[in-house]
Amino acid sequence: MSSLPMIPELLRQLMRKPATNLFPAKYLPPSVTEFLQSVASGKAHLTPPVETPPRFRGKIEYQKDGCIGCGLCVKVCPSHAIELLPETKRIRIWVDQCIFCSQCTDMCPKGGLRMTDEFLLATEDRYEENLIVE
């Protein structure tokens, strides 16, 4: 056996449970948002995803009320995902472009931006309502 050290290891693996955590949906849905909605209404089953680590960087949350329209977040966004709307002096975040670096949340002087734990955002429509934060 010394020349085939993998054999005992493989036999041991037979007794173990699979290490893989399956994708939340059984088949890849065209829109994860719609899939989550059908899970909420009890029409589909969701494999529970692995828990996110502390201070995970997920979808951005924006507190419009405290915003002063300074535009600093626009200045540091590497992917130009944030747009300053001139008429309201508030921002719009295009989550499809966001790279989840959390630089804007670090930059915001009012603490109005926050990264949530939400990460199931995949979809084929870049301009889905769920992917525009304002």
């Binding site: 290490a19 680590p53 201070r55 995970f56 790279i99 959390s102 630089q103």
Partner: peptide
Amino acid sequence: WRVREQSMDVIENLTGNRVNYG
């Protein structure tokens, strides 16, 4: 690749993400 996962988990814990650490 299974044993590699543990280092990815630690990186995720330290930085907030598995791949693009930031």
